[in-house]
Design a protein around this nucleic acid. Structure first.
Lengths: 139, 139
DNA sequence: GTACATGCAAATGCTTTGCCCGCGA
DNA sequence: TCGCGGGCAAAGCATTTGCATGTAC
């Protein structure tokens, strides 16, 4: 049994076949899958999974803080299970999402919130761009 | 004639009554209005403005980089005309949006992009929280 | 006059939900 | 058993778009 599954059981959720499939997909994902992607991967494990259940389950997990919802300026949500504090760099050409951590950045953000007189409950830092290359031909 | 209006004319856009109303609304806005809000304010100036035109105009201006589109984790877009580089702090209780600038933060973001080997074309930094207070009773 | 703009309503695309059946504990 | 969970399809909501008409230049 994986970690997410255990946490869901601890939270009192019933462990159905569909949920197990979805949780396994999330547990093994090292990317930032869309709902559609989670749906397709889950359906490969359990054909009875419906998109409605995927939405319901992902929202449930998001509320329980077991996954994090993003949108990356797209027209659909993406989810990730990496709950460690980190930020994202999105390649605007390929859609690739690169995760990074930066203590100096985090410290500065905390200081800014403090200076503004706010308690920080969440932060969103997304950098958009593309891989640097010699003779870049689109600018 | 306001600044936005001049820029639109320079860009070859026809200056219709509806566009003028919308541009005036944007020019005088010092907040981050939603499409609906821009629509209502514009309609007060020119009753013939339709929501479709507001959407079309805002998207046009966004592509021309005359306004900036945000979403602040809501289910609808918001727009702002402040094009200076700055970031946002969103009060999760009141919805209030506070703008701030921070050179140290910007420098760190540039350095991170450089270290990752990326060219930066856009960035999104949003802090979420609420005003600090003595005897805060919800945590 | 002509190409561009607009209003209206229908269409879209993602997401949510009502309803009723099925299944986990 | 009993109440939570799920499938299906309809509804919701923000946004976009086709089409016919209107209008800036």
């Amino acid at each position: 049994m994986n970690d997410l599954e255990q946490k869901c059981i601890d939270a009192g959720l019933k462990m159905t076949g569909q949920r197990r499939a979805i949780l396994e997909v999330l547990e093994s994902a090292d990317d930032h899958p869309s709902v559609e992607t989670v749906y397709l991967r889950s359906k490969a494990r359990d054909a009875s999974v419906s998109i409605a259940t995927v939405y319901r389950t992902l929202n449930l997990l998001d509320q329980m803080n077991l996954v994090k919802k993003h949108d990356f300026n797209e027209n659909h949500a993406r989810f990730e299970t990496n709950l460690e504090n980190h930020h994202h760099f999105i390649d605007v050409h390929t859609g690739e999402v690169v995760e990074f951590k930066d203590e100096a950045l985090d410290g500065r953000l905390r200081q800014i919130a403090k200076d503004l007189g706010f308690d920080l409950v969440d932060r969103r830092v997304e950098l958009y761009g593309h891989r640097k290359q010699q003779g870049n031909d689109d600018e």
